[in-house]
């Protein structure tokens, strides 16, 4: 990584911290995916990596390329916007699909469908 010698020390430190925090959160989320007991609890785990984890890695990338190319590089904002909009949608769809399947099978740990729908 010879090109990185041009970076000032504070930037290298900040980028390193952001990278470690981001990947650490993704790792904790993956552990949660493995450890938590049932599907509805596991849905919460990937959100760690998707929100703050992705945000930290994107910030590190923006800072790195902005300093390296000495011009403003902020196209990572596109990924940020995409992840912010899509993660809730996928998680909601997935949870609703799981709830639907549990209700079809008569699993009594999930709440019954609201009464308003069936009239």
């Amino acid at each position: 990584m010879t090109y990185a010698t041009e970076l000032p020390a504070w930037a290298a430190l900040l980028i390193s911290l952001l990278l470690l925090l981001g990947s650490g959160l993704a790792f904790i989320g993956a552990i949660g995916l493995l450890r938590l007991k049932n599907f509805y609890e596991r849905v919460h785990a990937p959100t760690l990596g998707a929100t703050l984890g992705m945000g930290c890695v994107l910030m590190a990338s923006m800072l790195f390329f902005t300093l390296l190319q000495s011009r403003l590089v902020i196209h990572e904002l596109l990924i940020a916007a995409l992840v912010v909009v899509t993660t809730p949608v996928t998680l909601m769809l997935l949870t609703r699909a799981a709830l639907y399947r549990d209700r079809i099978e008569g699993n009594d740990t999930v709440p019954p469908p609201p009464t308003g729908k069936h009239q």
Partner: peptide, 21 residues
């Protein structure tokens, strides 16, 4: 829905338009 699902720990599951819950 996006705010609640994007904060870890809460997931918006369903919305019932008939009785607004």
């Amino acid at each position: 829905a996006c705010i609640l699902t994007a904060t870890p720990g809460t997931v918006w599951v369903d919305y019932d338009a008939a009785d607004g819950t």
